[in-house]
């Protein structure tokens, strides 16, 4: 085992403090990771470039293939992210159990690559939720009533923006007329706020891990 290197992470995470952005609504429950990024794009061995294929089957009228020129593909004019009023959106408003299905981190990679910095929904699938934090994407849980209200506001006010304040743990309208608090795990908040590489953090405890491992393998040698 190589000694832990003090060097920075291979893919530094963008820190998240306060973000203001245009909100796009995706009004359906149980949006799964197959919908977020279809399987043919998982063949890539890179971490980037998934944005043009975010929600591919809803966004385009033809079938997407890796390597195709997405700029030339026919867009589905009815799909919400294709509407001009949501161009440049960086906050995605969604319904319950967002990100259910597979563990593919390509889903948050695609959302982040598209330009989203934060998600707002009543609930998320566990693995997806976890994966977001590793990629500088903040998944915010708000109660159904608050999410309903935001869906109504987005529909009513073109150009509707929200200010997301991670240190203060609030979602607010730009005029401050609505301020909703949200919960986030302190450790996750800390890592996201400072863009910390959690491998580096863990390796600070390498000795403790090594001692734990030695004892475990001695007691249960069949685990070797």
């Amino acid at each position: 085992m190589a000694p832990p290197r003090p060097s920075g992470p291979a893919h530094p995470m963008q820190p998240f403090t306060v973000h203001e952005g245009l909100v796009a609504p995706l009004d359906r429950a149980n949006v799964d990771t197959d919908a977020i990024i279809p399987k043919q794009f998982l063949k890539s061995i890179k971490r980037s470039g998934f944005g043009p294929n975010l929600f591919d089957e809803w966004r385009y009228l033809d079938r997407g293939e890796p390597g195709a020129d997405n700029a030339r593909r026919p867009l589905n004019p009815d799909f919400v992210l294709n509407l001009p009023r949501y161009k440049g959106a960086s906050v995605l408003l969604a319904r319950r159990n967002f990100g259910c299905g597979s563990s593919r981190e390509h889903a948050p990679w695609a959302l982040a690559d598209f330009g989203f910095r934060a998600l707002i929904a009543p609930s998320y699938a566990d693995i997806f939720y976890n994966n977001c934090f590793k990629n500088g994407l903040l998944p915010i849980v708000l109660p159904d009533s608050a999410v309903d209200r935001l869906f109504a506001d987005v529909a009513a006010f073109p150009g509707f923006r929200l200010v997301i304040d991670l240190p203060a743990q609030t979602v607010a309208t730009t005029d401050g007329s609505l301020v909703v608090p949200f919960e986030v795990d302190p450790f996750r908040k800390h890592c996201l706020q400072h863009g910390l590489d959690d491998i580096g953090l863990t390796l600070q405890h390498a000795d403790v891990i090594r001692a734990f491992e030695a004892k475990r393998l001695a007691e249960q040698p069949w685990l070797q």
Binding site: S103, R104, N131, T202, E213
Partner: peptide, 23 residues
């Protein structure tokens, strides 16, 4: 036994551990 994302795969490769809260 549970599924993890690719960042966590890297974390396990590098540290043999995962950071998580009890469910």
């Amino acid at each position: 036994a549970f599924g993890i994302g690719t960042s966590e795969v890297e974390h396990v490769l590098a540290t043999q551990c995962l950071l998580m809260k009890k469910a």
